[in-house]
């Protein structure tokens, strides 16, 4: 069996979620590598696009931010913010966009906090804020969420609801006036969680080799159903080669 790191399995698992033909709203870091890997492995006709307005960038080198000059090279077009977000709000195109998001906190409905911990006006810890995350989470039909599996991150109630998940359940988004869709999968350093079709509550869908469902529960601030959980197929040799040689040979993100 080929050795791999946790970041590598997380990236591969995310790449497998991207379907051929998806338009991928990409953030920075691990989500960029996942989107790049998907194009090489399972979704050659997927399109990477950045909130800054770069559409289908060639990405000969790994960008460090969505505004990195590397996203501007050999694109279909270079636009701006009003264009790019409108793509996701667009009634026809928006349905084909999949978002990849990260956060500091998540609740059982996949609502995300990337703004602050504690009181909003006098926070204990301040994070960057929404950026385009809330926009993407509001508009797109499916999203992948990356987060570390820690008790303080999986919480009953997020301190600040930055990006909408399923809000308070099945009808939450509809009641709030949001378009359809919502988070489909949460990928952590231990497991993959999905959302129940009827309740939209998070459940454990899979765990990485060597990690038990109990250990996963021990690292969460709320209970989830573990009865459907299966062991996740580790990254294949081919998947790892793509990650290491094509996506991040400098190990800017994978380390």
């Amino acid at each position: 069996m080929t050795e791999y790191t946790l970041r590598e399995i997380m990236t591969v698992v995310a790449a497998r979620e991207i379907k051929d033909g998806d338009i991928v709203f990409c953030g920075t870091g691990i989500s960029m590598i996942a989107a790049m890997a998907a194009k090489h492995i399972n979704a050659p006709n997927s399109v990477i696009f950045f909130e800054t307005g770069a559409i289908d960038s060639k990405l000969e080198e790994l960008p460090l931010t969505v505004a990195d000059p590397r996203v501007m090279y050999f694109t279909s077009m270079n636009g701006g913010l009003t264009d790019s977000f409108a793509t996701m709000q667009n009634k026809f195109i928006g349905k084909h966009v999949i978002g990849i998001l990260g956060a500091a906190q998540i609740d059982k409905f996949g609502n995300l906090n990337s703004t602050s911990i504690g009181d909003y006006l006098k926070p204990k810890a301040r994070f960057p804020g929404s950026g385009g995350a809330c926009d993407a989470a509001s508009f797109v039909n499916r999203s992948i969420i990356f987060i570390q599996h820690e008790k303080r991150k999986f919480v009953n109630k997020v301190d600040y609801l930055t990006s909408p998940g399923w809000l308070d359940g099945l009808d939450g988004r509809k009641k709030a006036g949001l378009p359809g869709g919502g988070p489909s999968v949460v990928i952590t350093n231990m497991a993959v969680m999905r959302f129940d079709e009827k309740t939209k509550e998070m459940y454990l869908s899979g765990y990485y080799p060597g990690i038990t469902p109990q250990k996963i529960l021990d690292n969460m601030g709320f209970e989830v159903d573990i009865s459907r959980a299966k062991e996740i197929k580790p990254p294949s040799h081919e998947e790892l080669i793509v990650l290491r040689e094509k996506c991040d040979p400098q190990r800017l993100i994978l380390d």
């Binding site: 977000f85 709000q89 703004t115 909003y120 006006l121 929404s130 809330c134 926009d135 509001s138 508009f139 600040y160 609801l161 930055t162 990006s163 909408p164 809000l167 939450g172 988004r173 009641k175 709030a176 006036g177 949001l178 378009p179």
Partner: peptide, 15 residues
Amino acid sequence: PTRSSLGTDILNKWG
């Protein structure tokens, strides 16, 4: 107008 941020604290928490 936009449809972004419905249901979130962007709407609820004012600085």
